[in-house]
């Protein structure tokens, strides 16, 4: 299987461990990633607050490149990117005037016919059973709290993925790989990642709420599919401790666990650079 690939800024910056994890995991699953040529930032959390038109134009430029490269589907491992790309794609497809305006602004024709997918959807396309067949080890000892955060499932009308209140797609996959995901209450409660640099105190309270609920529900790790959630839950855990967080919680990317199950080495998945270190029995 080969697929278009939009890494996004975080994966080329502070979350380059996520990029390593995704690339190694995808290689092991036989998924070839064709990186979008000369991609630009999607606008992330900033464009939609400051200028509506820009928040469509930045993703539109990337969609235009994908169309030019004839990529039918585009994988964005960051849910902020995949949501913004999906939103722009839908808006452009359903509005002829916008289609023309955006094509002019971004200097390349954009029609809105790219299928944008997140990390879990790539695993679904490979097939959970096919992944389980490739597994070389059982994910024993793993009791993950699967954390979806905000943008994997919201807004539901745009992303049309899983259930916005009770998603289960990560649990289903990890169960097949031998892990024992826990039932918990904060699967889709925001961790505060969007303001991790500009409202530290407020964010610490949100991080605490999510992580303490994971601990109280019996989890020994949290699994995410978002670079912002990962860095926030991991880096801000020291602040959450001050609010009473009862123990360290390692934060994995979903691609780490799938990678480990199909035989990738922990070192290649780049799981050693976390703020909260990963215990030996979870490597």
């Amino acid at each position: 299987m080969d697929i278009g690939y939009y890494p996004g800024c975080a994966l080329h910056g502070s979350s380059n461990d996520y990029e390593a994890s995704v690339r190694v995991c995808m290689k092991a699953l036989g998924v070839e990633l064709n990186e979008l040529e000369d991609w630009i930032c999607c606008g992330a959390s900033a464009a939609h607050c400051i200028n509506k038109k820009l928040s469509t134009a930045l993703p539109a430029r990337n969609l235009g490149i994908a169309e030019k490269q004839n990529l039918k589907s585009l994988f964005a491992p960051c849910p902020m990117c995949s949501m913004e790309l999906t939103k722009a794609n839908e808006a452009i497809r359903s509005d002829e005037a916008l289609r023309k305006e955006m094509s002019d602004i971004v200097e390349t024709p954009v029609t809105g016919n790219v299928d944008v997918v997140n990390l879990i959807q790539v695993f679904q396309a490979v097939g959970y059973d096919a992944i389980a067949e490739r597994a070389t080890r059982k994910l024993e000892n793993f009791k993950p709290a699967c954390y979806y955060g905000c943008l994997l499932t919201r807004p539901p009308k745009v992303v049309k993925f899983d259930d916005p209140e009770e998603p289960t797609s990560m649990e289903e996959l990890l169960q097949k790989l031998g892990a024992e995901p826990v039932e918990w209450n904060c699967k889709t409660v925001c961790c505060g990642g969007g303001l991790t640099l500009s409202d530290e105190e407020g964010v610490a309270a949100m991080t605490y709420r999510v992580l303490q609920n994971a601990i109280d529900s019996g989890a020994n790790c949290v699994v995410v599919a978002c670079p912002m959630c990962q860095v926030n839950l991991d880096m801000r855990q020291a602040d959450a401790k001050k609010l009473g967080l009862t123990k360290d919680v390692p934060i994995f990317y979903l691609s780490d666990l799938v990678g480990l199950a199909v035989g990738c080495a922990a070192k290649d998945l780049d799981i050693e650079r976390r703020y909260v270190s990963i215990p030996k029995d979870l490597k």
Binding site: S14, D38, N51, E107, R273
Partner: peptide, 29 residues
Amino acid sequence: RGKMHFKLGSPVKDKELVKRIFDRCGVEL
């Protein structure tokens, strides 16, 4: 942890185009 980088992993080739997109959207910063 190697999470702070002083250069971009890979730079954008057509930076002027990005500026034109911002200007056409009327973004003032």
